[in-house]
């Protein structure tokens, strides 16, 4: 019933729809600009992601390199790999991450996520009044959430993509130094590409996971705090 009442006198302007909306293009633009303005801070968030993801990607591609060598070289190559410290199962011909390695990877990803949560919380707190003003201007909760998720997605893509590529390059270099040309010749490129993709996806997920709590905090903030913050 209340909608009717407002409709009667509102919407006098041309081209104005009934709905409150924020087009996707505009959302992306606003998020991108928010990132650019706080470039230094967002780069720190991104760099923590780059480090963690490049480590993950390094480990994964390393395994691919080793698997390639094992496939090409048979038992002899298996011994070399064992000597180099890989966890090789000679029976099945598979190379696995050692338990220690797995733990370090998990830990680094965890630490990275905590870092992201921290950085995003700061970014939300810093922008409390900005969020409040947006809400005073008619922004819906979902729009605020969307802006923060978009920012995190952009940071995630950049950080995780860069990190995965970096890790892959280092892993290939390391393989080249350790095992020579064999590392390249025997490398299952598709698997390596898959590893890079997996690492990127993991990084992106972490970035979105890290921003979830801060973004929900921002979404739930009542616009009155925009006024109160300064008083």
């Amino acid at each position: 019933m209340s909608k009717k009442v407002f409709d009667a006198s509102g919407g006098s302007g041309q081209g104005i729809q009934r709905a409150i909306s924020l087009p996707w293009g505009k959302s992306v633009e606003i998020s991108f600009r928010s990132l650019r303005v706080r470039l230094f801070r967002s780069m720190i968030t991104v760099s923590s992601l780059v480090l963690a993801v490049s480590f993950l990607s390094f480990v994964l591609v390393n395994l691919d390199v080793a698997a390639g060598i094992l496939k090409a070289g048979g038992k002899a190559a298996g011994k070399i790999l064992l000597a180099a410290g890989y966890d090789v199962d000679l029976e099945t011909g598979r190379v696995a991450m050692s338990a220690k390695e797995r733990w370090i990877v998990i830990l680094s990803l965890l630490v990275c996520t905590v870092g992201i949560v921290n950085a995003q919380l700061m970014s939300v707190t810093e922008r409390f009044s900005e969020i409040g003003v947006m809400k005073c201007l008619g922004a819906l909760d979902s729009m605020v959430l969307r802006l923060f998720l978009l920012e995190a997605a952009m940071q995630g893509l950049l950080g995780a993509g860069g990190g995965a590529a970096l890790g892959c390059i280092f892993s290939l270099l390391a393989g080249l130094i350790r095992f020579g040309g064999k590392a390249f010749n025997a490398l299952p490129w598709l698997d390596a590409l898959g590893s890079v993709g997996l690492a990127t996806l993991a990084g992106l997920t972490l970035s979105l996971l890290g921003v979830l709590y801060p973004a929900i905090l921002a979404m739930r903030m009542r616009p009155i705090n925009a006024l109160r913050a300064e008083h």
Partner: peptide
């Protein structure tokens, strides 16, 4: 910005 929220077209 408030006009964007209101669904007004960019040029208008």
């Amino acid at each position: 910005l408030p006009m964007t929220f209101a669904g007004m077209h960019g040029d208008d």
